[in-house]
Measured scan of single mutants.
Amino acid sequence: MAAAAAAGAGPEMVRGQVFDVGPRYTNLSYIGEGAYGMVCSAYDNVNKVRVAIKKISPFEHQTYCQRTLREIKILLRFRHENIIGINDIIRAPTIEQMKDVYIVQDLMETDLYKLLKTQHLSNDHICYFLYQILRGLKYIHSANVLHRDLKPSNLLLNTTCDLKICDFGLARVADPDHDHTGFLTEYVATRWYRAPEIMLNSKGYTKSIDIWSVGCILAEMLSNRPIFPGKHYLDQLNHILGILGSPSQEDLNCIINLKARNYLLSLPHKNKVPWNRLFPNADSKALDLLDKMLTFNPHKRIEVEQALAHPYLEQYYDPSDEPIAEAPFKFDMELDDLPKEKLKELIFEETARFQPGYRS
């Protein structure tokens, strides 16, 4: 834990890192770190609560700039109880001085990944967590956004079992017609939660990839272990087919990539493993919904509104309290091709509203 900075004593240090967030945020305490930044909790002297502050230093890398800009653009436009918001952003007053960006968010005690390492969940908890994931996802999908990296560590939890989806750095506007060349190379989302079509096709992607990830998360809540822990690309596919069985001819016809289709045709026939054999203690309604989410063919996979209306979630289902976005989200430009200098300018502009004396 960093010592509390005395008023006016300059930035606090946390594990050798400068955290320049005073005077409003003090009493910093280390939480963890990701690929390009550290997260601390801090005391907000204005709202009198502890908050989470993520320090991001992305400006050396085009990919990190892209992810940072995506996350900020999306989260500043989203407003939903099951999606983490941005409360404040701290950065230098000029673009030349801006080396880091500090993002202030609600402090959540833990995440689903940490929880599943230590606790076996009751059916009631599984049901409530799944409902909140789908409630947040309904809003995301209504904005025409794909999260693309749903996994237990991106689901934040607090002691009252509130759940918030975080990390929109890989999110995209849904565009089933656009052929994202190089899709697989830039697709760094965790393999275990990846839909089979991501490994088999490169053309376009749809909201059904997020539903697949939610199915993987439900299976993990039922058993405290990942359902498809593939060691590499082909191993991942083999794990999936080992449980779902061989795809039907109709399902194979959806695979545009001939090499991928021929690979699947070359494999020995596998039978589907019954879900109640894998999860003998699970609620039968939970397994019915799991089956509809972990469907090989993305066109037959359940959609988020149908999933919310499934009998497993009937005690929570309330369409009048499951809000959607006001308007579909649009990125003005494809960020993939922009140089990091341009992305830095866009991050600077996007964060201006939090600067003292800002006038829109």
Results as ranks from 00 to 15, higher is better:
residue 236 Q to V: 06
residue 272 K to C: 10
residue 9 A to Y: 04
residue 140 I to M: 09
residue 136 G to C: 04
residue 114 K to N: 15
residue 172 R to C: 06
residue 87 N to C: 01
residue 122 S to C: 14
residue 211 I to M: 12
residue 346 L to D: 13
residue 235 D to F: 08
residue 272 K to N: 15
residue 54 K to L: 03
residue 287 L to N: 08
residue 332 D to W: 05
residue 314 E to I: 00
residue 70 R to C: 14
residue 301 R to W: 03
residue 159 T to F: 12
residue 218 L to Q: 14
residue 252 L to H: 07
residue 111 D to G: 03
residue 117 K to T: 07
residue 110 T to R: 07
residue 63 T to M: 09
residue 300 K to F: 10
residue 62 Q to T: 07
residue 226 P to Q: 06
residue 50 R to Q: 08
residue 140 I to E: 11
residue 321 D to R: 10
residue 349 E to K: 14
residue 21 V to Q: 09
residue 195 A to I: 02
residue 34 G to T: 02
residue 185 T to K: 10
residue 157 L to K: 07
residue 137 L to H: 12
residue 167 D to I: 01
residue 11 P to M: 14
residue 358 Y to D: 12
residue 89 I to K: 03
residue 209 I to K: 10
residue 279 F to N: 01
residue 340 K to N: 14
residue 100 D to P: 03
residue 75 L to R: 01
residue 193 Y to F: 15
residue 116 L to H: 06
residue 320 S to I: 07
residue 277 R to A: 08
residue 5 A to Q: 13
residue 21 V to R: 03
residue 39 V to A: 04
residue 293 M to S: 03
residue 344 K to L: 04
residue 82 N to K: 13
residue 245 G to E: 08
residue 234 L to K: 08
residue 178 H to Y: 11
residue 124 D to P: 06
residue 198 I to R: 10
residue 300 K to M: 15
residue 183 F to A: 05
residue 210 D to V: 14
residue 310 H to C: 00
residue 253 N to H: 08
residue 109 E to W: 03
residue 306 Q to D: 05
residue 94 T to M: 11
residue 8 G to A: 07
residue 263 Y to T: 06
residue 195 A to D: 15
residue 135 R to T: 02
residue 65 C to R: 08
residue 262 N to G: 05
residue 68 T to Y: 00
residue 317 Y to D: 05
residue 74 I to G: 10
residue 107 L to A: 08
residue 324 I to H: 01
residue 49 V to H: 07
residue 320 S to M: 10
residue 305 E to V: 14
residue 62 Q to I: 11
residue 134 L to S: 13
residue 15 R to F: 13
residue 326 E to H: 01
residue 55 K to V: 11
residue 298 P to I: 01
residue 208 S to C: 06
residue 289 L to G: 04
residue 232 H to C: 01
residue 20 D to P: 11
residue 93 P to I: 00
residue 155 L to G: 04
residue 89 I to W: 06
residue 263 Y to F: 15
residue 127 C to T: 04
residue 224 N to V: 11
residue 110 T to P: 14
residue 131 Y to C: 05
residue 166 C to S: 15
residue 39 V to H: 09
residue 350 E to Y: 00
residue 284 S to T: 14
residue 117 K to H: 08
residue 89 I to V: 11
residue 200 L to G: 06
residue 351 T to N: 11
residue 306 Q to V: 03
residue 88 D to I: 00
residue 250 E to T: 00
residue 103 I to E: 06
residue 86 I to G: 00
residue 241 L to S: 13
residue 351 T to H: 01
residue 250 E to H: 00
residue 241 L to W: 08
residue 297 N to T: 15
residue 187 Y to P: 01
residue 227 I to Y: 03
residue 51 V to H: 02
residue 299 H to G: 08
residue 279 F to T: 00
residue 356 P to I: 02
residue 60 E to W: 08
residue 126 I to T: 05
residue 14 V to D: 15
residue 124 D to R: 06
residue 118 T to A: 09
residue 200 L to W: 03
residue 130 L to H: 05
residue 269 H to R: 10
residue 40 C to S: 14
residue 31 I to H: 01
residue 215 G to K: 13
residue 282 A to T: 11
residue 297 N to I: 15
residue 95 I to S: 07
residue 144 N to V: 07
residue 330 K to N: 11
residue 66 Q to S: 04
residue 343 L to D: 12
residue 26 T to R: 11
residue 251 D to R: 07
residue 214 V to G: 12
residue 284 S to E: 08
residue 337 D to T: 05
residue 233 Y to Q: 06
residue 336 D to A: 11
residue 68 T to V: 04
residue 295 T to C: 06
residue 309 A to H: 02
residue 147 H to I: 04
residue 228 F to K: 00
residue 345 E to N: 06
residue 142 S to E: 08
residue 134 L to H: 02
residue 165 I to H: 10
residue 336 D to Y: 14
residue 278 L to Y: 06
residue 282 A to K: 02
residue 292 K to F: 07
residue 209 I to M: 09
residue 58 P to D: 01
residue 123 N to D: 11
residue 93 P to E: 07
residue 205 Y to R: 12
residue 21 V to W: 07
residue 192 W to D: 10
residue 354 F to G: 12
residue 265 L to E: 07
residue 260 A to Y: 00
residue 194 R to S: 15
residue 197 E to Y: 09
residue 224 N to T: 13
residue 27 N to P: 09
residue 143 A to E: 09
residue 188 V to R: 12
residue 193 Y to E: 11
residue 169 G to W: 02
residue 174 A to R: 09
residue 346 L to C: 10
residue 214 V to P: 12
residue 249 Q to M: 06
residue 219 A to R: 13
residue 71 E to W: 00
residue 156 L to V: 04
